[in-house]
Amino acid sequence: MSKVLFITGASSGIGAATARAAVKAGHKVALLARSEDKLNKLVDELGEDNAFALPCDVTDVEALESAFDAAVTRFDQIDAVFANAGLGATGKGTEEGDIDNFRTMIDVNIFALTVTCKLAIPYLKETKGHLFLTGSRAAHATLPGSVYGATKWFVRGYAENLMAELGEHDIRVTNVNPGMVDTPFFDEEKPDALRPEDVAGAVMFALEQPARVSVPSIQIYPMR
């Protein structure tokens, strides 16, 4: 059965790979990111019948609300929301970290993620849908002074709280926790890391389970 996925951070990396996997499986995708050019190229690749570009800064609440409205206008419904947009650290730990980077990371990784989830809930109630959050292996380890890691610990706890809130509405919640992924998140290639397609496969696995099955958390790590 074809579903409509709403994906933030969709212009590259895990978001773009998930969009490709979803369309290959017969689903439709609404794609959010700040880079309009990259989104348009992805829509050209996937086909306008299958994909819809929604240039948007996820920290802008009004723009995010408009994106949800536009996606429903285009595809009639939303069956899954992947709160995937995220930002990494520019410095190691707290002492060597950059204060402006702290603020931006918290805005994207925490504030924008919670707003995305809040706005998604009314649509997912209608479809008994699925909410995905991009966590991290960093939320299952102690990284000295890491503000980035702390934002992912927030995601881990928040995902569990959402499960407690949304289970009565038959909305499934899955926290996807990848280890290092070779994406534009890093300035140099990571040959031993996961590929975005690996994480997309984990998302699709959870999405395609029967309604009676909940996959609350997926850990997906590189072998090395």
Rank of each mutant, 00 (worst) to 15 (best):
F82Q: 07
A150G: 13
K3C: 07
H140Q: 12
S146W: 05
D76W: 05
T134E: 04
D60W: 01
P122G: 01
S146N: 03
T90N: 13
D198Y: 00
E48V: 11
A202S: 14
T90F: 13
F6T: 04
E126P: 01
S217Q: 13
A33V: 08
D187A: 15
A30G: 15
F132E: 12
M105E: 14
R20M: 11
G149R: 06
G9M: 00
T90S: 14
G149K: 05
I171L: 10
G149N: 06
D69E: 15
S12D: 09
R20G: 11
S12R: 11
D187K: 08
A19K: 00
S11F: 04
E62N: 08
T104V: 13
A138G: 12
S35Y: 05
M163C: 05
P216Y: 07
G97W: 09
I171V: 15
T114E: 11
I218H: 04
P222A: 09
D57G: 02
P55R: 04
D198P: 07
V58I: 13
S2T: 13
L133Q: 09
T94G: 10
D98E: 11
A83C: 14
F111Y: 12
H130Y: 06
P144D: 12
K152C: 14
E45V: 07
N109V: 10
G145P: 05
G149C: 10
P216H: 12
G26S: 07
A89R: 07
L5N: 09
R172E: 11
Q219H: 13
N101C: 10
D170M: 14
V199A: 01
I110F: 05
F102C: 02
V155E: 12
A25K: 02
K118G: 08
V173K: 00
A141D: 15
G97V: 01
T73G: 15
E197C: 10
A71H: 02
T142Y: 12
A70N: 12
T114L: 03
T114W: 02
E189C: 05
V72W: 02
E165W: 02
A211P: 03
G9H: 00
P55F: 07
T94R: 01
W153F: 15
G13P: 00
A83T: 09
G13Q: 04
L166E: 11
N161P: 02
T18S: 13
F75R: 01
A63K: 06
A30Q: 07
K152G: 14
E165H: 03
E168T: 15
V181G: 01
E160M: 10
Q209C: 11
A120Y: 06
L87F: 13
A83H: 08
